[in-house]
Structure formats: C-alpha cells, structure tokens
C-alpha cells in the first residue's frame, strides 16, 4: 500500500462502516453504497454522462455557440449544408443550426424541470395524503387519479394548449396536468407500506400532527421511487414538448425549441434534410440519456423492481 492510497482506503472504510457513529455518516454511507451500485451499471453511467454534458452545454451556451441563435444571414447563408463554418448547416432563415441546438438545450431543460417541479409535488401530496388518511379520502383521491390516468395524454395536452394559447408556459402547464397521476400512485403505494410501521406509531404517540407526519416522516420515504419514476418520465416529457412544438403549439418563433426546429425543416426535408434531422438527433440523444439514467437509478435505488 502506498502512502497516497492509505487515506482513500480508510475514507471508504469509514463510509461503509457497519457501525456509523453519526446520522450524517450513515446517510453518507448509504449514498456511497447506492453510488457504487449505480457505477456498476455501464449504460446508466453513460446516461448520466449525457445528462451532465447537456447541463454543461446549457450552462456554457454563450461560449459554445458560434453564431446567434435567432439572427441569421438571409443573404449569404440560407440552407447551407454542414460545413466547417456551419457545423450542422443552416436553416431557411440563414441561422446556424448548431448554435440553435446549443441554445435549445436550455429550453428543453426548462420544460423538463418545470414539469417535474409542478407534477411531482402534486402527485406526492395526493398520494401520501390518500395513503395516510385512508377511508373515503383515499377512495376519492385515487378515483380522481385513476380517471386522469386513463386519459390520452398527448391529445389532452394538445387541446389544453389550443385553448390556453400557444407558448412554452402553457405547454409546461398542459404536460404537468397530465403527468402527475403516476406519481400519486407510487407515493400512495410507498405510504401504505410505511404507514403502520413502528416508527410512525412512535411519532404519533409523541403527538405529532398528521400534517407533520406526512411531511417529515412519510414523504421522505417516497423520494427514491419518485426520483426514479420522474427520471424515466423525462424522456416522455421531452417528446411531448417536442410534439407540441412540432404542431406549432409549444415555444414560438424565433425560440430555438427542438420540436419547432424540426417543424420548420419539414418543408425542405427532401432536399435540405439536415434542417430537420439535426434537432431530432439532439432530442433522441437527450431522451436516451434520461432513459438510461432512469433505468440505472432504478436498479441502484430499488434492486427489487429491476427485471433480472
């Protein structure tokens, strides 16, 4: 053993200790064990890599882009094929497709995160309250959830946005409204498994209010399955958002939203295929990344549900 490796070995030992000395050490150790399980899944790591690249691209879009995403050179640069100047070609308004895709990553991330931030807490709240309260509260909430679950998502999102008016905010709202039911189901199932466990009884006898029990002691137990499900849903959210953009109901011009970019390239698809092909490639890579990451997380956080 070299002197350099010594501290890392002991740090690992400390993390994986059977007898953690503090709550902090225990939770860090658990996270570390999960991380190790996750790293064993190469496809999952690849997915994480894609998402990290996506996040960096969105963060450093100003540095990475070579042209403006909205202003084009109508005179000299219309519908140019991929070349050294324009790596992925240009569109019908002379805008650099590479730069537009780079900036479009921000829109994709905004949509995905907003939907997750709206839909996941709603589902969590409905599910935990239904599961903990039981009785007719449970019946009513779950019946409503089932009704929403049985709806066709894309077509409802389409007509929602048609009524609300096109735009990225309304697209987010429409997708979120159709996205929460599965989360409610998962949260309820998790709640039912912990509801009658001893630690909940102890907290109840200590006089904690139902509000506090649900918020502090039940919701945290739902987090890992919820995170897995949300990650796996990200791809679907991206595809729905792109579909709305393609129909013309999502982000409005000149925003470089990937679905809308495909729509604008549709007219030239037979001769200038790159205008529509490139943004679609970006969508495919990012959704694939979220799917792989989600499956990796599922196997690491919840080994029971993996289909081995």
């Amino acid at each position: 053993m070299s002197a350099v490796e010594q501290p890392t070995m002991s740090r690992r030992g400390w993390l994986l200790s059977e007898r953690p000395a503090s709550r902090w050490q225990a939770s860090l150790g658990r996270a570390y064990a999960t991380w190790r399980r996750f790293l064993a899944n190469r496809l999952g790591v690849f997915g994480l890599f894609i998402i990290i690249v996506l996040l960096s691209i969105a963060a450093f879009a100003d540095q990475l882009a070579t042209y403006s995403p909205v202003a084009g050179d109508l005179k000299n640069a219309r519908l140019l094929p991929p070349s050294a100047q324009h790596w992925l070609g240009t569109d019908d308004l002379g805008r650099d497709i590479y730069s537009r895709i780079i900036y479009g990553s921000r829109l994709t991330l905004v949509v995905v995160m907003l939907v997750a931030v709206i839909a996941a807490p709603v589902g969590l709240l409905v599910g935990t309250v239904a599961g903990y309260a039981g009785g007719w509260t449970d019946s009513v909430l779950m019946r409503v959830t089932d009704i929403f679950l049985a709806f066709p998502k894309l077509i409802l999102a389409l007509s929602f946005v048609a009524a609300l008016g096109p735009g990225i905010e309304n697209a987010v709202l429409a997708i979120a409204i159709t996205a929460w039911p599965p989360y409610a189901r998962i949260a309820r199932a998790e709640t039912l498994t912990v509801r009658s466990s001893d630690y909940i009884k102890v907290v109840q006898q200590m006089g904690a209010s139902p509000f506090r029990i649900v918020l502090r002691h039940i919701m945290p137990m739902c987090n890992s399955s919820l995170i897995v499900r949300v990650t796996l849903d990200m791809a679907g959210i991206i595809l729905t958002a792109a579909g709305l953009g393609f129909v013309g109901l999502g982000a409005q011009p000149p925003l470089p939203e990937w679905g809308a970019m495909i729509a604008s390239g549709r007219r030239f698809i037979l001769d200038q295929w790159w205008v529509a092909a490139m943004p679609g490639m970006a969508i495919l890579i990012v959704s694939l990344g979220f799917n792989l990451l989600g499956e990796g997380l599922r196997d690491a956080l919840d080994p029971r549900s993996s289909d081995q």
């Binding site: 595809l239 495909i262 698809i269 959704s287 694939l288 799917n291």
Partner: peptide, 18 residues
C-alpha cells in the same frame, strides 16, 4: 426498444420519407 422510447415519432417519419 430503448431507442423506440426515446425517439420523436414525427422525426423518424420525416427521415423515413427521405
């Protein structure tokens, strides 16, 4: 299967037309 889950159907449609 994974690629099927991750691909925008309208995009694949356009490419297959080409």
């Amino acid at each position: 299967g994974l690629i099927g889950y991750s691909m925008p159907i309208f995009w694949l449609g356009l490419l297959s037309l080409v």
